[in-house]
Write a protein that binds this DNA or RNA. Structure first.
Length: 458
RNA sequence: GUGGUUGUAGCUCAGCUGGUUAGAGCGCUGGAUUGUGGUUCCAGAGGUCGCCGGUUCGAAACCGGUCUUCCACCCCA
């Protein structure tokens, strides 16, 4: 062998068993997307750079994979830019396309481009890979799948409630118990910043607050101080660090805390309405937990913020996230269209299901029946029988060559085939076939005249 | 992008402070078993020790670089 081939860092091959498991998740997610009235779209793997750049903050820009222009792109760069050795100014001259970074921004672009053919409110789902030039870690890849459901053109809180129920429906169907849907509202965060006099430091404040469960109150306060938030402001925020108890308890505290902030109170009202409605409607297996420290996607979320945490005891970052964005399409020239969406992190859900052993056993059975090949007329009879089985939707195959029985049986065993069929010389003579149950070792003979006797209760 | 970590057979991993021909289990191939897998027994194949360079009489081991793995930070699904 020459040099061993490899794949880029953070990417993966998916083998048949992986695909079976991924399809299992995708099928369930898709099923509920459809049942909730979402319609599928797909967008290109790469977009024009200016569609993506600047939409995810500086950090996001860094993580976007840029695609080099075709042709002799370097000769078209002017000497000043070329010799400046500055990637930031050089990049736009040699690259005008980039790989999709998430599904939300391309969707916003799609809505604006197709606004005249879309019936609003528009509920769309999209399951496609996205790419980030991040450094890989557990559950973090450079190519991974997102499964998004978004509603645009509807700004009632009913959407928030519905999407929480959608999360619940999917995780219940996946038999993944103990998932927590964390809920916050950007208006709450803005209100807090207002009340504690840190309005112009909102992002730094929330990013630091987000780390509360990770680095503790001390760590958060230290970071806030370092980011230029005054000691008085941090002191005023003190009640937040101790916030705990039921959703109702927390809301009561917030109501007092945010009394002087119009925006904050509006956020409290939203959360109150959502949590009350969910209490009313009920959730099957997930739980909804208010979390004022939650601060994701600040670059475009304006209202609700969601984040889905794996069951306790599983070491995994969030397995889903989303929120409301009042003006996402505004950046592409379509004003006043409110949107809200959630995302399922397929690859992380996969890892969680794997860790908890929640994939159904049936996924391992890629083939239900294998016919042993005895060559000649016998193999033709097997092929005929296999075709009859296939017509009834049974996954059946004939071993492709007249190899040793031992080898064929071993193949069936390794592939987890539950039934092996033998049609040899003996069986040909009396027009029959033998079925071996691989789990029990039991063998039964059936007539080739009426194979349905065998397969009717498969 | 910053700091650390890992890489030895198809897989999981041993391999001592540098010393002859680099090991195990599982898997694979063949046989015991010419119509029976999964259990058992016997035999066998399979490695430029991630890659490039350096130190040394001698490197899987030490040093430098590079790629990769995983982890923390940043950020995120």
């Amino acid at each position: 062998m020459a040099q061993k081939p490899s794949i880029p860092k953070g990417t993966r091959d998916f083998s048949p068993e992986d695909i079976a498991k991924r399809d299992y998740i995708i099928d369930i997610v898709k099923k509920h997307f459809k049942v909730f009235g979402f319609q599928p779209i797909e967008t290109p793997a790469f977009e024009n750079s200016d569609t993506l750049m600047g939409k995810y903050g500086d950090e996001g820009d860094r993580l976007i994979f840029k695609i080099l222009n075709s042709g002799d792109f370097i000769s078209k760069v002017d000497d000043v830019t070329y010799s400046s050795k500055d990637s930031k100014s050089l990049t736009p001259k040699i690259s005008d396309k980039a790989l999709r970074y998430d599904l939300t921004v391309p969707f916003a672009r799609y809505v604006v481009m197709h606004q005249n053919e879309i019936d609003f409110p528009f509920k769309r789902y999209q399951i496609q890979p996205v790419w980030r030039a991040d450094r890989p870690q557990k559950g973090r890849f450079r190519e991974f799948y997102q499964c998004d459901a978004d509603v645009v053109g509807a700004n009632s809180l009913l959407q928030e409630i519905e999407l929480i129920q959608l999360y619940d429906a999917v995780f219940t169907d996946l038999k993944l118990e103990g998932v927590t849907i964390k809920l916050n509202n950007r208006k709450i965060l803005a209100g807090i910043a207002e009340v504690i006099d840190a309005k112009n430091n909102l992002v730094n404040f929330t990013v630091a607050l987000d780390k509360l469960d990770k680095i503790g109150a001390d760590g958060v306060q230290k970071e806030m101080l370092a980011k230029g938030i005054s000691e008085q402001s941090i002191k005023k925020a003190d009640p937040l660090f101790a916030l705990s108890g039921s959703n109702t308890d927390q809301l009561a505290v917030l109501k007092k805390f945010l009394a002087d902030s119009e925006q904050g109170m509006s956020g409290v009202e939203d959360l109150e309405y959502i949590t009350n409605s969910i209490d009313d409607l009920g959730l099957q297996s997930t739980q909804l937990a208010l979390d004022v420290t939650l601060a994701r996607g600040l670059n475009y979320y304006t209202g609700a913020i969601f984040e889905v945490a794996a069951p306790e005891g599983v070491q995994m970052g969030s397995i889903g996230g989303g929120g409301r964005y009042d003006d996402l399409t505004g950046i592409f020239g379509l004003k006043d269209v409110s949107g809200i969406g959630i995302s399922f992190g397929l690859d992380r859900i996969y890892l969680v299901l794997e860790e908890l052993g929640l994939f159904p056993e049936i996924l391992h059975k890629s083939l239900e029946v294998l016919c042993i090949n005895f060559g000649g007329k016998e193999s033709m009879a097997s092929l005929k029988l296999a075709n009859q089985l296939r017509k009834h939707g049974i996954r059946a195959d004939v071993y492709p060559s007249n190899a040793k029985m031992q080898k064929q049986m071993k193949y069936a065993n390794n592939r987890n085939v539950p039934y092996v069929i033998l049609i040899g010389e003996k069986e040909m003579m009396n027009n029959s076939f033998v079925v071996k149950n691989m789990a029990s070792g039991e063998q039964n003979t059936f007539s080739l005249e009426n194979p349905a006797v065998f397969f009717k209760n498969l």
